[in-house]
C-alpha cells in the first residue's frame, strides 16, 4: 500500500465519521467540529490521491488543499461568530427547541 493510498483511505474514513457526527450531533460546537473533520478528510483524500507512486508530491493538489483550508477556516470562523451571538442572545448551545444538556 502506497503512502498516498493510506492518506486517501484515512481521509475517507474521517469524511464518513464526520458526516455521521454531523447527522447525529445537535450541540453547535460539536457540529462545527464534525464539519471540520469532514473537511480534513476531504483534503486528505485530495492530496492522497494526487500523490503518485513515483514519489514527488503534486503541487497543484497541495495548492488546492491550501485554498480549501482557507475557505474552511473562513466558514468555521463565520459559524463561530454566528454561534457566539446566538448563545449570547438566547443562552442556548443548539438550534432546536430541546433543553441543553
Amino acid at each position: 500500500m502506497s503512502p498516498g493510498l493510506l492518506y486517501a483511505l484515512a481521509g475517507m474514513l474521517l469524511f464518513v465519521m464526520g458526516l455521521a457526527g454531523f447527522a447525529l450531533l445537535r450541540h453547535l460546537l460539536r457540529r462545527l467540529m464534525a464539519f471540520n473533520l469532514v473537511g480534513s478528510g476531504t483534503f486528505l483524500v485530495l492530496v492522497g490521491l494526487a500523490q503518485r507512486p513515483d514519489g514527488e508530491p503534486d503541487p497543484v493538489a497541495q495548492a488546492l488543499v491550501l485554498t480549501g483550508i482557507v475557505v474552511a477556516i473562513a466558514a468555521t470562523a463565520l459559524a463561530l461568530v454566528l454561534m457566539r451571538r446566538w448563545f449570547d442572545l438566547t443562552g442556548r448551545t443548539r438550534l432546536d427547541g430541546e433543553a441543553d444538556e
Binding site: 486517501a8 469524511f15 458526516l19 454531523f22 464539519f35 469532514v38 473537511g39 478528510g41 476531504t42 483524500v45 485530495l46 490521491l49 494526487a50 493538489a61 488546492l64 480549501g68 466558514a75 459559524a79
Partner: peptide, 17 residues
C-alpha cells in the same frame, strides 16, 4: 457547508482519476 464538502470529495476523486 456539508453540501460543498460532498462536492469537493467528488472533485478530489475526479482529479485523482
Amino acid at each position: 457547508l456539508a453540501g460543498s464538502l460532498a462536492f469537493l470529495l467528488g472533485v478530489a476523486l475526479l482529479y485523482g482519476a
